[in-house]
Design a protein around this nucleic acid. Structure first.
Lengths: 250, 250
DNA sequence: AGCGTTTGCTAACGGTGTTCACTAAAGCGT
DNA sequence: ACGCTTTAGTGAACACCGTTAGCAAACGCT
């Protein structure tokens, strides 16, 4: 009888660990649905437990509190966002770098518009998590999300699309930060110089800013439709990195 | 006896209205302190009432609910921020436009760093307020906050510091939005063309973005110190509008 | 002095996070 | 197959929260 007692699809997980993983997954799934439907305030352990047919204190076997739960589902959301962006990217002919970039970035904004509550918890204000909470999962998911953009950006570098500042042009203090940034995210390719990382973060800041502004409704009462502003920033950012802008379809 | 029964410093307020205004002010003051000390979650009607020596339901005579209260104090916070920025601006010789701009923008970031919870509620995710809530006060305070920057920006325009895009270069949809933006905020000076408003919003988006990123701790685990990135963006933004950048003192 | 308005209270409902002591079951080693 | 250990989940309890309804006292005006 070669029935494996331990080696299972889940890779080296005992039965107990498997069912544990399953209910944890259920918790996260329900939590996320509540987040979507009722906003961050609407996620409550008691409601989740109710829906699962158990009581709230039982959840503490799986999650150390409501804050930790919200961090946990952050990882899922980054995965979802990453998938959406990656799908948009691969929906464009592989060689057409310009359109791939356009599509990816617009997909980013589009996802944010369709998932305001998620976006807010991912990119909005954080209360610094207690030191013991495991954040690695969310970090890894965030890395995966950025990967699509890094890849495309690296293509631009290899194609020599725009002028990259020399390392001497990067102020010393900024250089230090950019290095830890690049190291932590593991972006070291032949073309990825310090100057390139600087340009990349500058672009990201701008797009992050305009999308945050839209989702957080900062200009809600002075500007009805934020899309033109986004497109304008997009255009400006892309011209900086030698990518041809094209207005959205239709 | 010329004792004025109605005409008082508060301008045409009956005694009742005055004491009412006073307790409302007390409510807002305590609410704001709680916001600073315990974050947005830590503002509760019950706690405020307790501190005032009354009970929570009594507060409903003054405020229609906790959400409305948070909106109310938003106005105060904008005032505070506006004062800080204005103070930094006027701490520089009046003719030195470049330094005034630098000082104002750094004061903006500095205030944000010193008032994370306030900044988060002001610039972070909003749940759209119920239609009946009065938002005009916060809007006016926000306008006052922007005024310092508008004034300085207008100076740059009048000095012809940089090239302003012609109106034809502004895409039609964006132009529409920028017009309502400019109208609502009342920025119509001789120099304030559509192209100028476009440049202004672009600059604002970038600075908003980098400060949000820092305060919301979006890159918390990949970048320890965000100041160099802010300074880098600041430098880049200022070069766009013909202002000389100088690194911060010390 | 009387009367309507405004203010604040108590009580109550329904919701929340979290801790603790406890039971019942599942897993594991022999 | 038995017994022991680890674990999952429960119930009760504590300390909060926002909000509504009904009522009594204080206030201001005529």
């Amino acid at each position: 009888m070669t029935k494996p007692q331990i080696e299972r699809p889940g890779a080296g997980l005992s039965r107990r660990e498997r069912v544990r993983e399953a209910t944890l997954a259920e918790i996260k799934e329900i939590a996320r649905r509540h987040l979507v439907e009722h906003g961050a305030q609407g996620v409550s352990l008691r409601a989740i437990a109710r829906e699962m047919g158990m009581t709230a204190p039982g959840l503490y076997r799986y999650v150390s509190g409501i804050d930790a739960l919200l961090i946990l589902i952050t990882a899922q959301m980054y995965d979802d966002l990453a998938d959406t962006v990656a799908a948009a990217d691969s929906g464009v002919p592989e060689h057409d770098t310009d359109q791939r970039i356009l599509a990816s970035l617009r997909a980013f904004r589009g996802w944010a518009l369709d998932h305001r509550a998620e976006f807010s918890t991912m990119f909005g204000p954080h209360t610094r998590p207690e030191p013991d909470t495991d954040i690695s999962e969310a970090l890894e998911a965030g890395r995966r999300f950025g990967a699509t953009f890094f890849t495309l950006f690296d293509r631009l570098l290899s194609e020599g699309r725009f002028e990259v500042p020399s390392d001497e042009e990067v102020p010393a203090e900024l250089a230090r930060e950019l290095r830890t940034f690049a190291d932590t995210l593991g972006l070291s390719t032949p073309h990825m110089s310090l100057g390139a990382v600087m340009v990349l973060s500058s672009c990201w800041v701008r797009l992050y800013g305009v999308v945050c502004m839209e989702i957080f409704q900062h200009l809600n009462f002075v500007m009805a439709n934020m899309e033109p502003l986004f497109e304008s920033e997009l255009r400006s950012v892309l011209s900086r990195i030698g990518v041809e802008y094209r207005p959205p379809e239709e």
